[in-house]
Amino acid sequence: MLTIRPARADELPALTAFPDDDERNAATAAYLAGLLESGCTRPEWCLAAERDGRLAGNVVLWTMPGRAVPMDIVLLEPGDPDTGAALLAYAADQARKWGAQTQGHVLDSPAQAPQFQRNPQLREDLLANAGFTVIRDGCRFRWTAGDPMPAQDERLNWRSLADLGATPFVELLADTFTDTEDSIFQAEIAEHGLRGAAERNIADMLEMDHQPGWYEIGYEPAGTPVAISMPARTPTSAVIGLVAVARIGRGRGYATSVVARGTRVLRDAGAAEIRGDCDADNTAMVKAFQRAGYRNFTNRKMFTRPL
């Protein structure tokens, strides 16, 4: 008989462990310990599937630090198809109980530490059967200390959030959304309009770990705002965060300039590794990361479902 319940204290942070896989077991346990410490998850959000007195799988819910409503599934060990389906159904019920209206999950290929999402076809089938749909088929990029520092764009004068306040960021981002190629932004614009989507994205970035001086707008010599750079930190990595180029600045390589600027800001703050994501079909951003010296280390599908 299969039982799904909150994990016991003695089962955290290891949860489901695999024989003869010490690397995976240690990395995943350390990752979950960090999520618990940072407030991205809670013990009651760590859900275990038990069969015949042994753990048969688990699912862990996630949110941004400081929020009380779980947003996504961050760790999923489905076991067999029946266990995986039961875990996803239980995760939906619990998230709904705690106030969530949607639920997301990401699937990386090839599998990466610390999640080690093996059996990708099983996982994708489970997600589809549980009502998830793909909202982004994307690429993930990485720069590490020791890689060449991307050249800075001397054409742009950067002014920070501390100097400008949030309104110019919202206004410029709304302008960039007019013809965005990013699938997630397109969905948000369809639901909230250009201004509303911009406000929501700037608000989300303000919740991320950052210094006010990190968030900047790049101005051309004539004083025209053309680019937004918003690098930040997650509990596990430094990230380029939000990159945007105004319509008037397109075709001049400013997306690469933003990636380079964010890289320098984060490197100067001590980051040893920096990551960035974009749609696989967003050719301009793919080229921007590549020209800034980033490597495509994995691909990521982002899923969501209504609750």
Rank of each mutant, 00 (worst) to 15 (best):
D10R: 11
A174Y: 08
T236W: 08
D20K: 06
T28V: 01
G57P: 10
S160F: 07
T133N: 04
Y219V: 02
R275K: 09
L61H: 07
A227R: 02
F116S: 06
C139W: 08
L32E: 02
E188L: 13
Q211T: 10
E37K: 13
E191G: 01
S257F: 00
T16Q: 11
M230K: 01
Q186P: 02
G165P: 06
R67N: 14
L15W: 00
R136Q: 14
I274Q: 08
L266F: 07
N157K: 09
A92I: 10
A255D: 05
S183E: 12
G39C: 03
A280S: 15
L242A: 03
M230C: 09
V286I: 07
G196L: 07
P148R: 06
D175P: 08
E50I: 10
I274D: 04
P13R: 08
F303D: 07
M64I: 13
A91T: 11
L55R: 11
V69I: 15
F18T: 09
N299M: 10
A151I: 04
T234K: 04
D21N: 14
A26F: 00
L307S: 06
G165C: 08
C46F: 09
R67D: 15
E23G: 05
R264Y: 02
A284I: 15
G223F: 05
D137N: 14
L173K: 04
G193W: 00
D182K: 03
A162R: 04
P110S: 08
A203L: 05
D125N: 12
R250H: 07
H192C: 02
F185D: 15
F141I: 02
L156R: 01
M302C: 10
Y254E: 03
G84I: 01
L87I: 12
G79A: 11
W214H: 02
A232F: 08
T178G: 02
P148T: 07
G66H: 10
F297P: 00
D204M: 11
T178A: 14
D268C: 03
L32D: 01
R195Q: 15
A9S: 14
D108K: 13
N58H: 15
E188C: 03
A292P: 12
G270I: 10
K301I: 03
R123C: 04
A86T: 09
A222N: 15
K301W: 14
E273Y: 01
D22S: 13
P231T: 04
